[in-house]
């Protein structure tokens, strides 16, 4: 069992390494992509400068805290896209029958299918996230917690993308729905939860899990709370398991009915 995990890890590590090597083949565009993404995120802060000139508390957060919120939104997005970029292209992989190559390998089909590409601009997001940590006020505790939530949040975003991508097993033209669904997370993650109310807030903590990926972690970053910390950890595990389960069900359907491969 342990050996199998180790072997799988070796594979995944190699796949990600090769993905990075590919992105770095063209050094100029690798660095431009990263730089522009950092500038891109920074430019969105102009909006908040204007808004905070009108009011010094938005959704219960100060300007500094909003910068940290942006930082976390960027780093979770960055983490998920940097290493698991192909989870956002999963519907395409399924529809074009590219999954077959992974099915015949003696490794985890899902994990191999989501680690075939690396996005260079996503490293810009990651860097931007940590820049915000320094602006907010660096401490080892904050740095550690921020890293921890970057990973949990990133994995939740990946899990959400896997669930949306797996729709391709069950319906036609799910690709655009998946794209739009993945956009939802980005849009909500860059605004404070305090401005939302009632039903929407409920959705943001359940079906569209921005609350667990970003909002609660932000609260923990500002004011550490062990209960909330554990809630985030367990819900992350829950979402990952749910994504794996849905993918597994889809894969089973793919193998038994095989609606797609008939579209030769």
């Amino acid at each position: 069992m342990l050996m199998a995990v180790k072997n799988q890890a070796r594979c995944t590590f190699l796949a990600i390494k090769y993905g990075i090597v590919k992105e770095m083949l063209n050094r100029v565009s690798f660095i431009t992509n990263i730089t522009f993404m950092i500038l891109n995120n920074a430019s969105m802060l102009i909006q908040w400068i204007v808004l905070y000139s009108l009011k010094d508390n938005i959704g219960g957060y100060t300007f500094k805290e909003i910068m940290l919120l942006w930082g976390l939104a960027a780093s979770t997005y960055g983490f998920s896209h940097a290493f698991f970029y192909s989870s956002f292209k999963l519907s395409d992989t399924i529809n074009k029958g590219k999954l077959d190559a992974f099915i015949v390998q003696p490794k985890n089909v899902l994990l191999n299918a989501i680690t075939t590409h690396v996005s260079s601009s996503a490293f810009g997001d990651l860097i931007f996230g940590y820049l915000m940590v320094f602006i907010y006020g660096f401490s080892f505790k904050l740095f550690f917690l921020f890293t921890f939530f970057t990973i949990t949040g990133g994995l939740i975003i990946v899990a959400f993308a896997i669930i949306l991508g797996s729709l391709a097993f069950f319906m036609d033209s799910s690709e655009l729905i998946a794209d739009n669904g993945n956009n939802l997370i980005v849009h909500f993650a860059t605004y404070p939860d305090g401005i939302f109310k009632g039903f929407v807030k409920l959705i943001l903590f359940t079906i569209v899990p921005v609350g667990i990926a970003n909002y609660i972690p932000l609260q923990v970053l500002i004011n550490f709370d062990i209960v909330k910390f554990l809630i985030v950890l367990s819900l992350t595990i829950f979402f990952i398991s749910l994504a794996c389960l849905i993918f597994k069900l889809g894969l089973k359907k793919y193998s038994s009915t095989n609606l797609m491969s008939a579209r030769i």
Binding site: A15, Q105, N112
Partner: peptide, 12 residues
Amino acid sequence: YDNFKFFGAIYD
């Protein structure tokens, strides 16, 4: 060569 090494990893 790199590809073959990768497949080597896949098959432990």
